[in-house]
Amino acid sequence: MYSLSQLKRALGSPNLFFRELNRLYHRRLNSRRFNTAGIDIFDADWDNLLILDACRYDMFEEQHNLDGTLERRLSRASSTQEWLHANFTDRDLRDTVYVTANPQYYRHRDVLGTTFHAVVDVWKEEGWDEELKTVPPEVTTKHAIEAAERYPDKRLLVHYIQPHYPFLTERGQPFDNDQAFLKPDEAGSWNQVMTGELDADANTIWTAYRETLDRTLPSVAELLATLDGKSVVSADHGNMVGERATPFPIREWGHPRGIYTSELVTVPWFVVEGDRRDTVAEEPAERASDVTDELVQDRLEQLGYV
């Protein structure tokens, strides 16, 4: 069901209105809460699963130079929040440590009801770069290596925030760009692009998007080189950069939940074989201290979620 405010917002923007119609189509009039054709990541075979946030299959295929075997999979979701609910809800994962640069799990953890052995929230103060408005991939890799050393008998789930917005270019951010969506000092969102509130040129965004993946892949390679066991590199969902959605052919931007186009749910499944390690389930380790709701909200805004 939709709230009155959501309905008013959709009716106030033709693009958002037709997005909602597309969502109803893909979710079969809301009879399913996620893409049931997608993979259950925790039933898959891996010791280490590295998630690149919002990484399209076609981008990864063209840009990676990692050693391994590339396959494709369908994700259960077209947004991180939806992906969490589709894969994590009420799961007993005491054999797994989750290292994440994305605050979405922390925000929804009580509703999700997931039991990990440990969760490492990289996005908190020690991992956040105030200038870049995100967690750099090098920092996520550092925390993941530390977690692998501390928990050698656990499955390791590592969630990079890249190539998700805000983008990282060779200079860190596209400071010299006039497009409002790419201004480093202002939190933007794909929804604002969708409604026309922020300027967006698909070619410029594609360049920044691709450069962000290029910036991230060396950190992924570094982590893969240190890990024991079978590793997989995948994504929670993809992203649309002005392509036409279905069945109503509006130009779509970002990764709205509940819309299962190929650009949004086709993800890489890159397998790196290694000597398997034994994993055990144990009671959860001591939980890190909580942070304020204001901090979580601020992080989400900087990442374009709000």
Rank of each mutant, 00 (worst) to 15 (best):
G238L: 11
R257D: 14
A235R: 11
F248P: 09
G242A: 00
A221H: 13
T216I: 12
V233A: 04
S234Q: 09
V232K: 12
P218D: 13
I250A: 09
H255W: 04
E243Q: 14
L223N: 09
E252C: 03
G254V: 09
L223Y: 09
V233L: 07
G254E: 01
L227N: 02
I250Y: 01
M240N: 03
P249I: 12
N239D: 13
T246L: 12
T216A: 14
P247Y: 11
S219Y: 01
S219P: 06
R251F: 07
D228C: 03
L217G: 02
G242P: 02
A225S: 14
P247D: 07
V232Y: 05
E243M: 02
R257G: 14
A225H: 15
L227C: 07
K230A: 09
H255P: 04
A221N: 14
V233Q: 03
A221P: 10
F248N: 00
G254Q: 05
G238W: 06
R257M: 06
V232C: 00
L217F: 14
D228Y: 09
E252D: 08
S231L: 04
A225I: 00
M240H: 08
P247S: 07
M240G: 01
W253D: 04
N239Q: 15
W253Y: 14
E222Y: 08
H237V: 12
R257S: 15
H237A: 14
G258K: 09
A235E: 14
T246A: 15
A235H: 12
I250K: 04
P249C: 13
V233M: 06
